[in-house]
């Protein structure tokens, strides 16, 4: 099966290891992975801030980049959920509507693709440690991916799982919200880090780098020793 990696700008720049792990996991389960180099950002930072016109420029580039792909898979619920918004955004646009529908229809978040498309529930990884999981808002509520990450984590050998209290609450990232409303964001992320500490877990795992950078950044600021990993990091162990 041919899969195009949607790296997401955040992983491209900030966490290249997540991209590497994603490629290796997909190959391990038998996919042929390519990386369309014309891809940029899904447009979400501008779109969510109200800059529709500006965000569309980036979205069009994404549609151009992935036009020949069979499947598009990315290690982020939030960025993939943004691709799924394209059909609404370009509805009635004679030039882009079809491409928007096409991209949304073939785009998947990594765990969603593994479990729901490939039917893979065990990628054969091993991980020693206590892990808690933060289900990101966009992955669960906008993309509707709730069970796939849990299914995969359950099958990681050696991994001890502890549930995160009030896990469905937002961590306070919210893209530009974290910078625009730092005072509120601080309270939200602080509460999240307290819940993480309550679990006693050694590792906090998630499927969205934005949230993980936010929670992880607050934990290092607080001097909390919990390590932060993307789910791809765990699944490629």
């Amino acid at each position: 099966m041919k899969v195009s990696l949607f790296i997401t700008c955040l992983c491209d720049i900030m966490s290249s290891d997540v991209g590497k792990d994603t490629v290796e996991i997909l190959e391990k389960v038998g996919c042929e992975v390519d990386f369309p180099e014309l891809q940029t950002c899904c447009g979400q930072p501008a779109y969510n801030s109200g800059y529709l016109k500006e965000s569309k420029e980036s979205m069009k580039q994404m549609m151009r980049a992935f036009k020949d792909s069979e499947y598009v898979v990315g290690p982020s619920g939030s960025c993939v959920a943004m691709l799924h918004e394209y059909p609404h955004i370009f509805k009635g646009d004679p030039e882009w509507e079809e491409a928007a529908n096409d991209l949304a229809g073939k785009s998947y978040e990594l765990t969603q693709f593994l479990v729901d498309v490939l039917g893979v529930t065990d990628v054969g990884s091993k991980f020693k440690g206590t892990v808690t999981y933060h289900p990101s808002c966009h992955m669960t509520r906008l993309l509707g991916v709730k069970d796939a990450p849990m299914t995969l984590l359950e099958n990681v050998k050696g991994l001890e799982f502890v549930e995160l209290p009030v896990k469905e609450d937002c961590c306070g990232f919210g893209g530009t919200f974290a910078v625009k409303n730092p005072v509120i964001s601080e309270q939200m992320v602080q509460e999240k880090t307290e819940h993480v500490t309550e679990t006693g877990a050694e590792y906090l795992v998630g499927g969205d780098m934005g949230c993980l950078m936010n929670i992880g950044g607050r934990m290092t600021r607080n001097g909390q020793p919990v390590k932060v990993l993307h789910i791809a990091n765990i699944l490629n162990q």
Partner: peptide
């Protein structure tokens, strides 16, 4: 980064910002 420049301050005033990866994904690929 504990004390970032300009608009990054909103972020770093309340939490650390990680340094970008040593090797970008693209160059690894």
């Amino acid at each position: 980064i504990e004390n970032g420049p300009g608009p990054m301050k909103g972020w770093t005033n309340v939490r650390d910002f990680p340094a970008p990866s040593k090797q970008s994904f693209r160059s690894w690929y």
